[in-house]
Simulated scan of single mutants.
Amino acid sequence: MEASLLVVLVVTTALIFDFTNGFHDTANAMASSIATGALKPRTAVTLSAVLNLVGAFLSVEVAKTISGGLVDDARITPAVVFGGLVGAIVWNLVTWFVGLPSSSSHALFGGLIGATWVTAGTDAVHFAKVVDKILVPAVAAPLIAGLVAAVGSFLTYRLIRRARADVVGRGFRAGQVVSASLVSLAHGTNDAQKTMGIITLTLIAAGSLPSHAAPPTWVVVSAALAIALGTYVGGWRIIRTLGKGLTSIEAPQGFASDASAATVILASSHLGFPLSTTHVCSGSIVGGGVGRRAPDVNWGVAGRMVLAWLVTLPAAAVVGAVAGRLSASGDVGTALVAAMGVAVGAWIYRASRRDPIRPDDMARRDDGAQPAERVEPPVEGRDSTPVAV
């Protein structure tokens, strides 16, 4: 396969990953505001998509970390990057299908590290940088966000304990629109840059850019558009988990969670840390639940979520290693990896259509009641009792 054609394939695959990142991580910004009724589901994802697009243009520090810090760009090829991307996309689709808010960022890092490790050797991976820029923030960020959200939620409930519930609800739902918007802006700033960094790394590996180059303008624009489009599609399965599965979110608690998450993500983007927005937002939602007057957290769901976090990087690394080895073997291997990636994606999509999650399933009326059940009409020749679905 010609080098230029392979680069086009890798860039296209990177943008596909960016798209999956968008719909996989929409829940990070909008799950709590949808759960409290601050925003209607479709309004929420549309607003999030626009702000993801805007946020992608605010910084390139995270992109520089990925393109020039995690692996030795002189010892990898576009085929290796392609294998890593396929590993990340497959893991993203699997965790989206089961509704687990795992980290798209760690899936990407794991796929890239695994593919680089098996094709270029252990010393081609800058493990000191991996620990400093990925593993330490992965542990610290959700704990910090959770602590800030817990304290913020506790203080908020103390301040409003004598206020009228309806006034408090309206006020904090309005505040949630602002705080959720900040999370969306922060997500675009941090996560779109990861795709920018991967594409830039590919161009450096192909000799199209000098080492440690910043992302070209067309890379920034295309990555911004891809993540915004994915966000607009809406990852309803994961939104349901974060909005309803972890804790029953109230407006003051949701405001505190979103505000703490946005603060942590924006600070990390400024410092060049490729943070997992999933870890931060999930940690802040748990922290907000802990900080309520009557703590309310489903620790079983939280435990499964943390388990997914622990497994994500090594699992994506294994898939990336296999895909990277095949891709690096030649054109046949690259074609085989592409075919397997398409087959897995198609199977997951078809399986998801058997049990679809719709925007209406996320809705909550202003009075706090859940949406009414849909009732199927009786079918002639069968039991005439209506069935709720």
Rank of each mutant, 00 (worst) to 15 (best):
L51I: 06
D18K: 00
T195I: 07
I357T: 14
A140G: 07
D258I: 03
V306Y: 05
A224I: 06
L155V: 11
A251N: 02
T202V: 09
D258C: 10
G169T: 13
V80M: 04
I238Y: 07
G22I: 05
S103F: 10
K129M: 14
A363G: 00
G87F: 08
L185I: 04
T20Y: 02
M305W: 01
K129V: 14
S102D: 09
E376N: 10
S257L: 09
S48P: 01
R325Q: 13
G55M: 11
I113F: 10
S384T: 13
S276E: 10
L229K: 03
K64R: 11
L203A: 04
T26R: 09
T77E: 12
H212L: 09
R161W: 01
V62I: 14
V306H: 02
I249K: 02
L9H: 10
A31K: 05
D366I: 04
T95A: 14
V375T: 12
F19N: 06
T195P: 02
Q253A: 09
M340L: 15
G333D: 07
A213F: 07
G283D: 11
D296A: 15
F172L: 10
A363R: 05
G146F: 07
V301W: 03
D18N: 11
Q370M: 09
S184A: 15
L9Y: 11
W96L: 12
I89T: 13
V220F: 03
V221W: 08
T277G: 08
F23V: 08
A49M: 12
A124H: 01
Q253M: 15
P378A: 14
A186S: 15
Q176W: 05
D166A: 14
F19L: 15
V280C: 12
R304K: 15
S179W: 05
A294K: 13
A180P: 02
I227L: 10
T36N: 07
A316W: 01
A56M: 02
G83H: 11
I198Y: 01
S104N: 06
L229I: 13
V311G: 06
R164D: 13
V332N: 10
R161C: 02
L275A: 08
S33M: 06
Q253F: 01
S179P: 04
L47A: 08
V178N: 03
S268W: 01
V71C: 05
S222W: 03
D132I: 12
L147F: 15
A145H: 13
T217P: 00
R354P: 02
G152Q: 05
V60W: 00
Y349A: 15
L143V: 14
R161A: 10
G254W: 02
I113L: 15
M196K: 05
V280G: 08
K133P: 08
L5N: 07
P314K: 12
G330N: 12
H24L: 09
A186I: 11
V167F: 10
W299A: 04
W299M: 03
G37Y: 03
A323N: 14
F97M: 09
F273D: 00
M30G: 00
V71E: 02
F97P: 01
G243S: 06
V118I: 15
A49S: 14
A14N: 05
L135P: 06
A205D: 00
M196D: 03
V136C: 07
R304H: 13
S67N: 09
F17N: 02
A372E: 13
L185H: 10
G345C: 13
L53R: 00
S48V: 04
A206N: 06
A302Q: 00
